[in-house]
Every structure is written in C-alpha cells, then in structure tokens.
Design a protein around this nucleic acid. Structure first.
Length: 321
DNA sequence: ACATTGCGAGCATTTACCAC
DNA sequence: GTGGTAAATGCTCGCAATGT
C-alpha cells in the first residue's frame, strides 16, 4: 500500500523541487524551515484524516516513507529508515489536529473528550470511541438543519410506519435520513439489541440490515459475503473435513445431505452449517432454514426450479453484540 | 504551532497453574 | 503431555496540560 503525497503550497513545492534536484547531485538534505514543515504537516494531516481520525503507528510509517520517497531531500540520514522523525511529527500533528477539530465541534472527536465521557470513564485512553475495522461512516454529523430533538420526533413517527403494508420505500428513505442519530445512539449508549430493536424495529428487516451495512461500511453485505464464501469454500471444506471425532461424523452427515445437489444456495448453507459445527456451536442458533417456492426469480445463481431453500441470517435477539 | 510529558486504560504476550 | 484459563508483564495509546 502506498500513500499518495498531496501537492503542497506553491512556494513549498518550489523549494522541495530545488531541494530534490540538489539532493540528486550531492545527497544533501534540505534545510527545512518551520514554514515548510508546517505546510507539509498540515496538508498531510488533513489527508490522513480523510482516511482515519486515529491512525495506527504503521499508518504513520507508510505516510512518512511515501513522503521521503516522493521528496528525497526530506530524508533524515540519522534515522534507521530515513523518516522516523517525520513519522513522529505526523503523530504529534495528528494529535494536535484532533484537538483543533474537536474544539470546532467535530462530533466524532468531541465524543472522546474527557468532558463528554462519563465521570467513571474520564481517562484519556479509556473507552475511546473510534471506527471498527472497515467502518467508513462511524459517527456522522446530523443532516443540515436537524437536531437531536427533531430527529427523535421523526424516529417516533417512524415507529408507526413499520406496520403499514407496501411501505418499504418510505421506511427506506426515513431510515437513511436518520442514520446519524442511530449511529450516535449506538456509539454513545451501546444499547442492547433488545432495546435497539424496540427503538428501531424497521432496522431489523432484511433489506434494512443490508442498507445499514451499506451506509456504515460502503459495502454490499450479502453479495460480498456470498462471493467471499464461494472463494473460500474449498479451503474451508478441507479444514472442516480434517477434523476427527464426533465433529467429523456430524459434518459428514450435513455434507451427505447436499452432496448430490447443485443448487448454490444449498451449497452455501451446507458450508456454513459445517463451519458452525466445526466451531462447536449449534447451526440452529444462527441459521433459520425454510422452504420457499417462489424466491430469487431471475437471480443468476438459481439452478433448481422446483423448490429450494434459502439461508437467511437472523440477528439473535438476546445477545448484546 | 509543534513537541513533550504524565497518567491510567487496555491490548497482546508470556508465565503459572490446574485438570485430565 | 495437552488444553484451557488466570495472573503478570510489557508496551502502546490518547487526552490534557505544559514546554519551547
């Protein structure tokens, strides 16, 4: 992975260009004025923030390495990799930049200020709220013109929309508009699924689970999951089959039931079930299986035209996460 | 405006211990 | 010896305050 170094201000670029050509001739490092340093750190800090508010050490390394690669005159001959100093500066810069943004009311940062934390959690490194892996829209701001009160009012209205027939479109629109308040609720209060289900029943419909995942991760949940499952099927089966004892017998039974079938849905179900058995869990706890006679019409992977089962993932109601 | 420090949380790794 | 778990340890992290 390589970080794209942005263009700096005109005068910085001029000096860097000059420094680079001198470096090529004499390997001489550019004497970096505080103005240039400031410009470089500012631009890089902003660009890093586009990816992450809380980058890891390795991320700073990647950026620092890209910087000295792009501008060799910034190389630090004293350090083991030529850019350790830049990595440290970027770390400081990012910390100070977060403070700055927080003071300007950036929600995803002010949520971690000591004042915003509960008194029992008022320590800098305690319960820092930051995106989990691949969460792109972890703590969005409210839509322009909306407040906590207005969105809460809308949430209550949404409750009455859920029971109405053929109302998916309306619900989808409203759920999308209330994404920010829902996220803040999840992050701030960490509610149990039961509580959250009571407050946001529409979210637990299949299409809304997919939509929410798309909003949060910018990835299509089901297609992506199924595609990856297909990619790893043979490897997974090898691992599962290698296990002995009672698990072997159970997984062999599941395999036998589907062995003759070419329906891709059944295959996927089979793989997931054997995997769950392999991990020592009960497949019935996660997967509900049912026969449907008229589903997936027109999907490319349908092979069996009579009856086929589909595997649906259901959120367990009584688990906290 | 950048750099440093202090503090305690929390994660990962190592070590110690126990039951089988 | 193996597998599992608990305790100990070392290290990194982030905010806030402070230094330069």
């Amino acid at each position: 992975m390589e970080f794209q170094i942005p263009r700096f201000s005109y005068d910085t670029e001029l000096q860097l260009e000059k420094g680079n050509s001198e470096y090529q001739i004499s390997q001489k490092m550019l004497n970096v004025s505080s103005q240039i340093k400031s410009d470089i750190l500012n631009r890089l800090g902003e660009d890093i923030y586009q990816y992450k508010a809380y980058p890891e050490d390795a991320h700073f390394c990647i950026v620092a390495e890209a910087l000295v690669k792009r501008h060799p005159c910034l190389k630090e001959p004293g350090s083991f990799n030529g850019c350790y100093g830049w990595k440290q500066r970027l770390k400081y810069k990012m910390g100070n930049y977060r403070t700055q943004l927080k003071l300007q009311g950036c929600p995803e940062l002010s949520v971690n200020s000591l004042k915003s934390k509960a008194t029992t959690d008022a320590f800098p490194a305690k319960k820092v709220k930051r995106p989990k892996r691949a969460e792109a829209n972890f703590y969005p701001s409210f839509p322009v013109g909306e407040t906590l009160e207005s969105l809460e009012k809308e949430r209550l209205k949404l409750l009455s929309e859920v029971g109405i027939r053929n109302n998916e479109r309306v619900i989808a629109d409203k759920m999308a508009r209330r994404f920010a308040i829902r996220r803040q609720e999840v992050v701030n209060q960490e509610p149990s699924i039961k509580v959250f289900q009571d407050r946001w029943p529409a979210l637990f419909q299949q299409n809304e689970i997919n939509a929410e995942f798309q909003r949060l991760m910018t990835v299509s949940l089901e297609p992506k999951f199924m595609a990856q499952l297909d990619v790893y099927t043979s490897q997974l089966m090898r691992v599962v089959c290698a296990k002995g004892g009672a698990t072997h017998q159970k997984t062999a039974d599941i395999m036998a039931a589907f062995d003759q079938n070419e329906n891709i849905h059944l295959w996927r179900e089979c793989v997931l079930k054997t995997l769950i058995v392999y991990l020592g869990e009960d497949p019935d706890d996660l997967i509900k299986e049912y026969l449907v006679s008229n589903m997936h019409v027109g999907t490319s992977c349908q092979r069996d035209t009579e009856t086929f089962s589909d595997t649906r993932f259901l959120c367990c109601n009584n688990h906290n996460s």
